[in-house]
Write a protein that binds this DNA or RNA. Structure first.
Length: 734
DNA sequence: AGCACGCCGACT
DNA sequence: GTCGGCGTGCTC
């Protein structure tokens, strides 16, 4: 009887396709194979095998490919994610399978050169310089040697041709040198040591700590929330869990938001483990990427630090997943397959049978609730490391301390910055608004510049001389004359953005180095990264920054943080606005005083009594969480359970056809599902397609997928290429 | 993802 | 009259 293989193909297909297995080919589930699809050959993965009588009209599997098979837990993860996110299985597989393309896989042989006994046939000054360096007989790369000798590469090549230097093929440098868990380290504080013990005691691989205990601890595979204020040393605590994991011979994965994956962090890792960890992020490409993937699959890479896509690496023996800064929104993937990496990490941990540690100074509400209800363990680090104090936080009531007309820095803040700079310390002015001014209007006719596609104001970017929509990216040149009434030179900028604050700071402190850090930093992400390093090294006095300064980087010289408009975001319609604002402000004020000197934060606000601001000022996070959870309950929003948004993406024509129909002609929701509102007006026109959202609330364990499928079936008749996904966010699924 | 088919506008 | 734009559907 012929054997039929169910092959999942990494395309947007929801079901595996059937192929016959040719005689003589032994296949097992998880094997990576090549199969014909239409006119071409394509890579797929064996999802299942069956012996059947029929199937003679099926095309045969071409053959097995020399890649490590996908493990059972990883295949289950693909199935799980596809089901949960309503994505086609093949799309979920594609995230795991990103296989090397031929070009990238071609390993170029690296060569090094070494001096031989042969004297040069024609000694020239340049050659003499090279030989002076090479005389020690050590191996060097060609370009390294040329650089060290201060000559060009051709001189080295000439000496090779002459036989004076010999080339030696070198092994490529290891992508993942083994970290040493027992490398000497700075001692932990008592609070940290206590947290380490509490954290790893119930982990399945026996930690050395409990080796001498009489009773072996009972394993507890619940995810753990490791919560501690900024500067409490959470990293060192979870490093000990990583150490215990690799001592037990298992691999560890540390997930971080991309922005936090800095040289600074890798150095901290190196300080603990002797080597830098293997890093996986969107910037790592080609050959290196594939070698690292192979090292992970062979179990050779013991620790991987990576952005969210690292979650899909084919670990041979995963023993621990750490999700650093678990509240970060960067963990949400918003295009293609919609998923939240933190939650998928919890799922993968469950499927792999390994513990998952979530860390944060300001956990997401749903994580806090999960911890409070005992579904997650909760380990806390209550104080800052090394006896350092949290920054003093004070409010500046903008109704009382008004800035000068046309200015945005209040007098108390200006004087605080002045004193900070006089002491030779750094100040950060935080304003979560890119560009120069959020609104431009004509003084003559009152026309307000608005996006052509969205309902938002166009933000002036003075550096680029453009008006830009922050919603959809639409941009136009900033006009000289009003496009409505034609009045020349009469447009006025309303409100501040970071560029405008930089202008103000430069005027106030003309002899100081002022730098603006935002995601549209001129020169791109790489230059931005360098600039962040420069700021951390103290090469700047006043930093004006958007939310990106709240993340990742540690600025040891920073002692003052001024928050310019703390109220931004509190009034937005987002049900998570309060939480987001609290997290952001807590993180950014926590930047102050992480070096030698104590820090201070001043918060400009019009509503010092707002619960979010009050909680921030009092440093009472407990109160904030309690109040926020209560407020959500009262508003019918879930503090727990799942808040999802159905996102429909439809073309302009489809929208026109569906116009007038209630987009939320929803199926009757099942028990436990509550529709919070009708589909909103189009959120944005993105690349010619409108996106809609439908917010639904669910209790745990409700078949949200089923409901959403029903919605799709009975929803507006937008035919054809309608894509649907769940906006995965606060949720529970265990 | 590719690739084919098919339906409409704008051109040698 | 065709050329080619992309919207749509199909691949075991």
């Amino acid at each position: 009887m012929p054997i039929v293989a169910e092959i999942l193909i990494p395309l947007a297909l929801d079901t595996p396709y059937s192929y016959v297995v040719p005689a003589g080919l032994e296949l097992a589930a998880g094997d990576v194979v090549q199969v014909p699809l239409g006119p071409r050959e394509i890579v797929g993965v064996v999802w299942g095998l069956a012996e059947t009588a029929g199937g003679s009209n099926l095309r045969p599997v071409t053959g097995r490919l020399p890649y490590p098979p996908l493990s059972e837990p990883l295949r289950s993860l693909v199935d799980w994610i596809a089901r949960y996110t309503l994505a086609p299985k093949g799309s979920a597989l594609a995230m795991v399978l990103r296989l090397p393309d031929e070009a990238a896989a071609a390993e170029t042989v690296r060569v090094a050169v070494r001096i031989t006994d042969k004297p040069p046939s024609r000694p020239t000054p340049a050659r003499t310089k090279v030989l002076a360096v090479a005389v020690d007989g050590a191996l060097r790369g060609k370009s390294a040697l040329a650089k060290e000798a201060g000559v060009s590469l051709s001189v080295v090549d000439g000496l090779i041709d002459d036989g004076v230097l010999e080339t030696v093929a070198v092994e490529p440098e290891p992508v993942a040198p083994p970290p040493d868990p027992d490398s000497p380290r700075t001692p932990l504080s008592p609070a940290q040591a206590e947290a380490v013990a509490a954290l790893i005691e119930p982990f399945p691989w026996p930690p050395s700590l409990s080796a001498d205990r009489a009773e072996p601890a009972e394993t507890d595979l619940r995810p753990v929330l490791l919560e501690g204020v900024t500067g409490s040393g959470k990293t060192e605590v979870y490093f000990e869990a990583v150490a215990a994991c690799i001592r037990a011979g298992r691999q560890a994965l540390i997930l971080m938001p991309e922005i936090a994956l800095t040289a600074q962090f890798l150095d901290r890792f190196a300080a603990r483990f002797g080597v830098r960890p293997a890093a996986w992020h969107s910037g790592i490409g080609g050959k290196r990427r594939e070698r690292l993937r192979a090292a992970v699959a062979e179990g050779e890479a013991l620790v991987v630090v990576g952005a969210r896509s690292a979650l899909f690496l084919p670990f041979a023996s995963l023993g621990l997943i750490v999700v650093d800064e678990e509240h970060e929104t960067a963990y949400k993937q918003e295009d293609g397959v919609h998923y939240h990496a933190r939650d998928m990490a919890v799922v993968r941990g469950r499927l792999e049978g390994c513990p998952v540690v979530l860390t944060s100074a300001t956990p997401a509400i749903e994580t806090r609730v999960n911890a409070a209800r005992g579904r997650y363990r909760h380990v806390r680090l209550p104080e800052r490391f090394g006896g350092r104090r949290l920054p003093d936080i004070a409010a500046i009531d903008m109704r009382l301390d008004q800035p000068e007309r046309g200015r945005f820095l209040s007098p108390p803040l200006v004087s605080a910055v002045k004193h900070t700079l006089e002491r030779g310390e750094q100040a950060l002015l935080f304003l979560n608004r890119r560009g120069y001014a959020p609104l431009t209007l004509c003084r003559a006719c009152g026309h307000r510049y608005q996006c052509k596609n969205c309902s938002t104001w166009l933000v002036e970017h003075r550096f680029r001389r453009a008006l830009v929509c922050h919603q959809c990216g639409y941009a136009e040149r900033r006009p000289e004359a009003c496009t409505e009434c034609g009045t020349f030179d009469n447009l006025t900028a309303c409100g501040p953005g970071v560029e405008r604050i930089a202008e103000e700071a430069a005027a106030l402190f003309p002899d100081r180095r002022v730098v603006v850090l935002s995601s549209d930093f001129p020169g791109g992400a790489e230059r931005l990264r360098q600039e962040l390093d420069a700021v951390a090294a103290g090469e700047c006095d006043v930093v004006i920054g958007t939310q990106l300064v709240a993340k990742g980087h540690n600025f040891p010289f920073l002692t003052l943080v001024g928050v310019l408009d703390a109220d931004i975001g509190l009034t937005s319609g987002d049900p998570r606005a309060a939480e987001r604002t609290f997290q952001l402000l807590q993180q950014v004020t926590g930047r102050a005083g992480r070096g030698e000197k104590p820090g201070r934060a001043l918060v400009q606000t019009y509503q010092p009594d707002h619960p979010v601001i009050a909680a921030l000022l009092s440093g009472d996070a407990e109160r904030f969480y309690a109040e926020e959870i209560e407020a959500r309950e009262a508003a019918g929003l879930p503090p727990f359970g799942r808040l999802a948004a159905l996102i429909v993406s439809a073309s302009e024509r489809e929208v026109a056809e569906a116009h007038g129909q209630a987009l939320a002609r929803a199926a009757e929701p099942p028990e436990g599902v509550m529709v919070l509102g009708p589909a909103e007006a189009p959120l944005a026109l993105v690349r010619g397609r409108y996106r809609f959202r439908l917010l639904v609330k669910t209790e745990r364990n409700v078949d949200l997928q089923g409901y959403l499928r029903a919605w799709i079936a009975r929803g507006p008749k937008v035919r054809g290429n309608v894509r649907v996904a769940i906006d995965v966010d606060p949720q529970s699924f265990l």
